[in-house]
Write a protein that binds this DNA or RNA. Sequence first.
DNA 1: CGGACCGTTCGGCCGCCGCCGAAGTGTCCC
DNA 2: GGGACACTTCGGCGGCGGCCGAACGGTCCG
Lengths: 236, 236
Amino acid sequence: MTTRDPRATGLARLAGLFADETRAACLLALLDGRAWTASELARHAGVAASTLSEHLSRLVAGGLLAEERQGRHRYVRLADARIAQLVEDLAAQVAPGTAVRPRSLRESSAGSAMARGRTCYDHLAGRLGIAVTDALTARGLLQQETGFALTDTGVAWFASAGIGLERRGRRPLARACLDWTERRPHLAGVAGAALCRHALDAGWCVRIGSERAVKVTAAGEQAFFDLLGVETAALL
Amino acid sequence: MTTRDPRATGLARLAGLFADETRAACLLALLDGRAWTASELARHAGVAASTLSEHLSRLVAGGLLAEERQGRHRYVRLADARIAQLVEDLAAQVAPGTAVRPRSLRESSAGSAMARGRTCYDHLAGRLGIAVTDALTARGLLQQETGFALTDTGVAWFASAGIGLERRGRRPLARACLDWTERRPHLAGVAGAALCRHALDAGWCVRIGSERAVKVTAAGEQAFFDLLGVETAALL
DNA sequence: CGGACCGTTCGGCCGCCGCCGAAGTGTCCC
DNA sequence: GGGACACTTCGGCGGCGGCCGAACGGTCCG
């Protein structure tokens, strides 16, 4: 028996964590960046609580999830932005033919709300995210010609809008995230997260229900138009 | 029985292709960007030809590999640059603690040659790739401050060096690829591929044996120094 | 034509893993 | 204290999937 390449072993082990429909459903759900309880995820995935408990333990042990125990609850969330990006990257590869078809009126409207605007871990996605990214690009604040980066005027724009861009760790300031509904890149990274956070803090957007979908408020409609010329009302 | 989210199903199926040590070893080997025969991969992975045949069929069916039959040979390679990127991304997540420890003198020298310079699908990696990326950045040809993109002078530099940058499809001009030995970003994307191709065509580098490792020639040493100020002799 | 070689198909074996329900532990709240 | 609740552990079941060797089909070459 030959000794095997440890990198292959590690890769297989990591991929194995994703290679189960129930765990995959959990990871996708957790892409909203929030912390879920074990029972919420069990209901979401449609399996027994005992089954899900074991899945969570594996995901935590594998470093994909961080957990936080509070009383009788076990909250889990994606471990960090790098893990979130990995989930996004994998999910983006899948999408090409895999459109999500709604199965009920309620899901249908929830689905179209998701397609209109949502968060993707910590930044804006959906048509809203893309519209913002396009607007930034059209105004010369972001450039995608020779890579993907904020321009000097782009950095100044964030400052003037009062949106702080604090670099922490090695996370890139701007990064492209491929949207799984639109198949187009949108702004992620520190700048994407800061913009999303500001939009929520300033009341430009509010979360719909407890899901990932977000809705643009009247104030947000004004702000997006004034600052970027984005007609959010035309997004649907 | 409830109907499941098709995205979770697809994600699990995709990840399942990576979630086997033998298939993972194949994918990592194929990161050299070349086409391998089934028996070469079987020997590399240490399994029977029959076993590997089935693995290849699954990988091809899953869209990860492209195959080309020639006579009695079955050549396979990674399907495209996006797949290569996905393999890189997953492998990069694994690396943190997983250093590849050499098991023999031959592997040891091959390993250090790999760490010194190699190709990563279609661009330069290893310490050579990082040195080139750092030099481009230090000279203001590439900027990583607000994202990852070539600067205007960077685009001009490629032109003046006679390295064509033909955009084709949606592949980004410049993209960061995280090196699994050095844990630092290096240039990938169209520019990275063009630079690597030029280095091989112009004889700056030659492949060592039939593996991914590359060696800088005397002419290359001169060229890298003249064009970028990189002291390739100091790489080890 | 015959032998060497590459790859594939098939049957069978074995182990892993996802699933559940039942029972147990700990927490919260009345 | 007692009951409801969130989660975990355990045993057992069933299926999937990776592995091999043997037999077979195709291709190349002498």
